[in-house]
Simulated scan of single mutants.
Amino acid sequence: MIAFVALLVSTLIIAPASAQLIGVCYGMQAANLPSPAEVVNLYRSNNIYRMRLYGPDQAVLQALANSGIRLLMDVPMTELQSLATSSSAAMDWVLSNVAAHWPSVTFRYIAVGNEAVPGDLAQHVLPAMRNVHSALVTAGLASHVKVSTSVGAEVLESSFPPSAGAFSTDASTFLSPIAAFLANTSSPLLVNAYPYFVYADNYAQVSLSYALMNETGTVVQDGEFAYTNLFDAMIDSVHAALKREGVQQLAVVVSESGWPTAGGYGASVLNAQTYIKNLIRHVGRGTPTSPGKLEAYINGMFDENLKSPEVERNFGLFKPNMEPIYPLNFVGDRPEFDGQSESIFSGNIRLIVSLHVPS
């Protein structure tokens, strides 16, 4: 139980010289969420300038106008088949949901399906990707907006050690041509990576500190590469699997990652805060086989009480009333400073909530 909440007002925020490429997923499966305009202001006031949106919600897109927030937006699973079978449907979708809001909304990626591979809808993913990409070409936006799909850990048949990473036969059937398409269009593969679930399902074999990125020494030595955390191992196993498909230099963007505060083994406010803090710090380094900045999106902005099972309801950084669940310290990733090496100063007043938990 929280003993007390201390409020500290700071009139100057200094961001580290290297802005991290961190975004937050804006899920809406919850009651009593703030208005889209309030949510966009919440992102900006916390220096969060990247968002994942799980479908083209018009109210959110209007609220994002001229906000400077870069957007990863999904094609909902219910629309995969129609976009795969009809180029005109894909054109209509792009015109209504992307072109109509460009350039006041900065779209970065369109995720055609979320964890649709493998599965009943997997056959529609690549045709839909091709049609959406062609529509973006026609609209003159293909050089700005990249088309991809988001996959989860279930696509891997082997992941240990990371260099042995390989897609399952069912996943490879679809991911091999998808990876070739991504390489041809200079687009990344979007990957949902959750060390939490690996830890919770294998806590007798996986240490908590390895999953939370708290280790300082090598836990897994894989040839010339040393792994101190499970997150890196998971991402590099995807890189290895892609290379087995013949794609050598495909970028990976982490489209979801997070840690729950309740509802499952190892779920707690302290563990969630530790993981997110370490993730924000870590992504600027990349992984052992792919050093450099790694773009990642945290799941999620709010606790979502309409999800199931229980653990899925507790990944939020904020309560629906916009109260932070634990202290936040995002690096300023404003568009005007993207990729530059300089300190960022802000005169905005920031509210920092310090939670004190008794032992």
Rank of each mutant, 00 (worst) to 15 (best):
V75A: 05
W102K: 04
D57P: 00
K146Q: 13
A193M: 08
A63Y: 02
K146H: 14
L306V: 00
N192H: 05
S82N: 06
S176E: 03
I298H: 06
I22S: 08
T78F: 11
P161A: 01
P327C: 10
A204W: 01
L182E: 01
A3D: 06
A59E: 06
G140A: 06
R350G: 15
L182Q: 01
M213G: 12
F225A: 09
R44K: 15
V94E: 03
L121S: 13
G266Y: 08
S158Y: 15
F315M: 01
S150K: 00
S290Q: 14
D236P: 05
T138L: 09
D74Y: 00
S163V: 02
L230P: 13
S18C: 09
V40E: 02
S82Q: 12
E215F: 06
F174K: 06
R70D: 05
V331D: 15
Y43S: 03
S207L: 05
N214M: 15
I325W: 06
Y227H: 13
V253D: 13
S159Y: 15
D170R: 13
R285Q: 10
L190R: 04
Y227A: 10
P195R: 08
E312K: 06
G284R: 09
A111L: 07
V252M: 06
A183V: 03
S207F: 03
I349V: 09
G347Y: 05
Y196D: 13
F160G: 02
S10Y: 08
D120S: 14
A139W: 04
W93A: 01
P34S: 09
A63W: 04
S207E: 09
V151Y: 03
R334A: 14
S268L: 12
L80I: 06
L95Y: 13
S67T: 02
A204C: 04
M213I: 12
Y326I: 11
S168H: 04
A200P: 14
I298G: 05
V117Y: 03
L53Q: 05
A111W: 07
T216L: 00
A122S: 13
F4Q: 15
N271K: 10
N305I: 05
A251C: 07
P162L: 04
G292Q: 09
I13W: 12
V40P: 02
P34E: 07
Q340C: 11
F231S: 15
G68K: 12
S257A: 08
V105N: 01
S354E: 13
N97T: 03
S176Y: 00
V98L: 00
V155C: 07
F197K: 13
A171Q: 04
A90T: 01
Q248N: 03
L294A: 14
M322F: 02
M28R: 11
Y26M: 03
F318H: 02
D201P: 06
K277P: 00
N202H: 11
Q205K: 07
Q123A: 14
S308A: 14
F107G: 01
L12R: 15
N46Q: 12
A84E: 00
F107C: 00
E295T: 10
G27I: 08
A296V: 08
N192F: 01
A226N: 10
A30P: 02
A135L: 01
L190P: 00
A111S: 14
L250T: 03
Y194Q: 13
